[in-house]
């Protein structure tokens, strides 16, 4: 059931490739806007790069949150999924995993290329990837709470931003902290460990909140 649900979501996403690409291009465009707005000085760009990459990743993954449950809610599939004998917790985990693979992995892959634009060293690019790899699942799973709460509401997209962005702040701080530490030449290990701890805690608790929110929204 778990594997089937992930597989189904991946196929659905594959048939709507343009949506996924739009998120990736959004990520690329936002990061490219910063040098244009701030100026091309190399030192300045290098010092703001950790924050820029992470904020852009945050916004890009937030944009795609509506897709976790949105389509299934509209055609009634979600109701059936909540009614199945399997725990809703697993349904949520499967959909979050699919969302992570579809919408976040491309960001992790493309991020080092964007880092090159900001003149980051190879060492730093590696930290960017590791921190995004640890941090983006947290974004997906916490974001799923907001996505579930706002199902079928007017102006759901703006509302999701209001609900979810404050909850993303620790991930932003830990993630960009790790990259910043590498830029300044210290070990990013402490930040990455904090990020991993956040990942574990949110993977355990957030799906529970999401399934509660789903049951409220679907009934």
């Amino acid at each position: 059931m778990f594997g089937w649900l992930v597989y189904r979501d991946l196929i659905l996403a594959w048939r709507r490739r343009a949506d996924v690409l739009a998120t990736v291009f959004f990520f690329i465009i936002v990061t490219s806007l910063f040098p244009l707005g701030i100026g091309p000085e190399r030192e300045l760009l290098r010092s703001i790069a950790p924050g820029v990459v992470w904020v852009a990743a945050l916004l890009a993954s937030m944009l795609s949150l509506g897709r976790i449950f949105g389509n299934d809610y509209q055609d009634g599939t979600l109701e059936q999924l909540v009614l199945t004998p399997q725990p809703t917790y697993l349904v949520v985990l499967a959909k979050v995993l699919a969302h992570w693979i579809v919408s976040e992995i491309p960001l992790v892959v493309i991020a080092p290329v964007l880092g090159l634009q900001f003149g980051l060293s190879q060492n730093t690019l590696l930290t960017v990837m590791i921190s995004l790899l640890l941090g983006t699942p947290v974004l997906s799973v916490i974001g799923s709470i907001g996505a579930a709460l706002t199902l079928g509401l007017r102006a759901a997209n703006v509302l999701v931003a209001l609900l979810v962005l404050p909850l993303y702040i620790p991930v932003l701080i830990f993630g960009s902290g790790a990259v910043q530490a590498t830029v300044t030449g210290t070990s990013p290990q402490a930040w990455l460990l904090l990020l991993a701890a956040t990942l574990i805690v949110s993977l355990v608790f957030a799906p529970w909140a999401t399934s509660a929110a789903l049951k409220i929204s679907v009934e």
Binding site: P166, L167, I169, P170, T198, A209, A212, I216
Partner: peptide
């Protein structure tokens, strides 16, 4: 109910946010 879920998630998050900041 939706507000309750959000408020409870927020309350769990407040210490995490506080220490991270």
């Amino acid at each position: 109910r939706a507000g309750a879920v959000l408020a409870l998630v927020g309350v769990i998050n407040v210490p995490i946010i506080y220490f991270s900041v």
